[in-house]
Design a protein around this nucleic acid. Sequence first.
DNA 1: TAGGTCATGAGGCACGTACCTCACAGAGTG
DNA 2: CACTCTGTGAGGTACGTGCCTCATGACCTA
Lengths: 347, 347
Amino acid sequence: MNDESIKRRATVHDVARAAGVSLATVDRVLNGRPGVRAATAEKVEEAIARIGFTRDLNASLMARARDLRLVFFIPDGTNEFMESLAASVLRRAPLALSDRLSLELRRFRPFDTQGLARELSELDPRACDSAIVVASEEPEVLAAVDAANRRGIIVLTLVSDLPGSTRRQFVGIDNVAAGRTAASLMGRFLPQGGQVAVIAGSLHLRDHLERWEGFSAALGAEFPAIEIVGPLEGHDERNQTAEIVYRLLKERPELVGLYNLGAGNGGLVTALETSGKAGGLRVVAHELTAPTRAGLIAGAIDVVLDQNPDGEIREVIRAARALALGAGREAETDPIEIGIFLRDNLR
Amino acid sequence: MNDESIKRRATVHDVARAAGVSLATVDRVLNGRPGVRAATAEKVEEAIARIGFTRDLNASLMARARDLRLVFFIPDGTNEFMESLAASVLRRAPLALSDRLSLELRRFRPFDTQGLARELSELDPRACDSAIVVASEEPEVLAAVDAANRRGIIVLTLVSDLPGSTRRQFVGIDNVAAGRTAASLMGRFLPQGGQVAVIAGSLHLRDHLERWEGFSAALGAEFPAIEIVGPLEGHDERNQTAEIVYRLLKERPELVGLYNLGAGNGGLVTALETSGKAGGLRVVAHELTAPTRAGLIAGAIDVVLDQNPDGEIREVIRAARALALGAGREAETDPIEIGIFLRDNLR
DNA sequence: TAGGTCATGAGGCACGTACCTCACAGAGTG
DNA sequence: CACTCTGTGAGGTACGTGCCTCATGACCTA
């Protein structure tokens, strides 16, 4: 073993030499092109493993004439959280360019799974390397993801996973843990016990159901002095959510806490403030957006649990880049942490 | 304006053409090499701005034969937080390699600022592109940073900043905000008020002083029912910290809360547990390490504020890469968020 | 005026991979 | 035997930048 082999990183040339094949064959194996016998491919794989070759992602990206193209599919509409995801994509686009990543953002009508499926199917694999999808679990979406995957587009799921599909990776938080965290905070805020109301968007949404499960389980196990009211469904809509809060405050003056595990926080804050109850009971909500931020500052909300949309975009970009450049079967991403925000650590 | 100029990203060739100079001159300007008249450099800068040229970081890294070398200087010793910083560097080293980043970790004896200064001075600019330093604010360190900077090494500070130096960037959290956050949590945990003790490592440490300021200011302003005991100094040492806690618990049985804004949490947890007081009072500590994690799980600690060492390493690597490849005067990093950990959202 | 320095131009090689063309051997097929 | 098809080798160009050499003209100074 000479100096060279100690110091230099292995290249495709080294692989070719080690496997006793030509550069062209190594290239065919690495990039999944046809024209290699299974036995030969095996030899190459073995050599790669033996000498510890890893593809140079920079050179790889250089060599292809065009940039890596990532297309984001994010629901449109009134959901502040989705807006911040979208904003994060747009904010990162110019920076990503100097890393040869071109980011495209496509919005679709919420729940228009057919439209999403159609757009996914129409993606040209030569013009798009990876699709990043925020979507609910519907059969036509699953089918479209699988179809895109077969056509050579790497699909990643964001925020909400599609476990049955051929998506290559999921980036998002553990919602059961988020619910447990909410319970843990609420329990510590209310050592004297009392009634706590829970509001969800809809328990048919996977995230919301998981949060509810985590919350109720942890509260029941650790804080038996607290009694849960609900869950009530506000459909992530600010007016409906406000309505629910008004009714709760009127009908249950003894209420000491409120946990909104869905969206519609604008309505929550408005209802608390116009009822004069802001600050009078402990309130936990999700996602750091304009309404929840305002609620924190005004004292209407005590804690916001946040899944850090900007971090999610960052990690999903890293994962997509690594996967598209063939760094392996799955990319290593930093876990997305559940952020806890009070008035004092707002970002 | 033809198709090409719309679709393609600008390259150095485009800059040369736009500025009416040769490629070599553009290169000299870009890489700060001598031999360019100020007026000519001006022309080039103007052209860069006009056509919106950004250097291709991948190509840039490719072109230099060797990898980018980053050297981390992290204090050695018993501090768990520093260990997790170091571990994060080591964990990322193999992954970084496929991005042509070679990470080297150097430990130094805590408070051995002279040794650190010497090592910094001995760095060879040809073998090291950037130095990342976790150090306290001592004159000889500042001088060594400035010297390294003059010799062409890009210096970044991590965790603890050196504001008066020529360090190019700082990556870390806002410790005043961290202190305020601790106060805000403590206040909500203790609506009935009472005595809360504060333990610091040393108020001569910038981070600790800032946390103390944030904590006392926020508590005084928002939770007048709480009375502060201390701050007491445990010198980030587990035995001294344990001693302080033992004494506090014995002398002040009415104590309802404890805030350790420094290290030495192993001693804190031990003292609480052997006194049978674990869970009996609200405890807030800093940095998610083995002792604080154990304390959370056992119920001895309620909340841990964490500056996410792994995220800090990630961001400082990104910043160093961008700076070393000349992406601009300062690199954009994602802000490091103050993490809040309960038993239920442990990572 | 000769020699020196400085600013600049011109051009080329290298980095590691992607992707292309061409050649050729061997196997199978009619 | 001539043909096609498949697996493989050989070699090239390109990506955008860093870095090197060499040449040239301008300007300065002794």
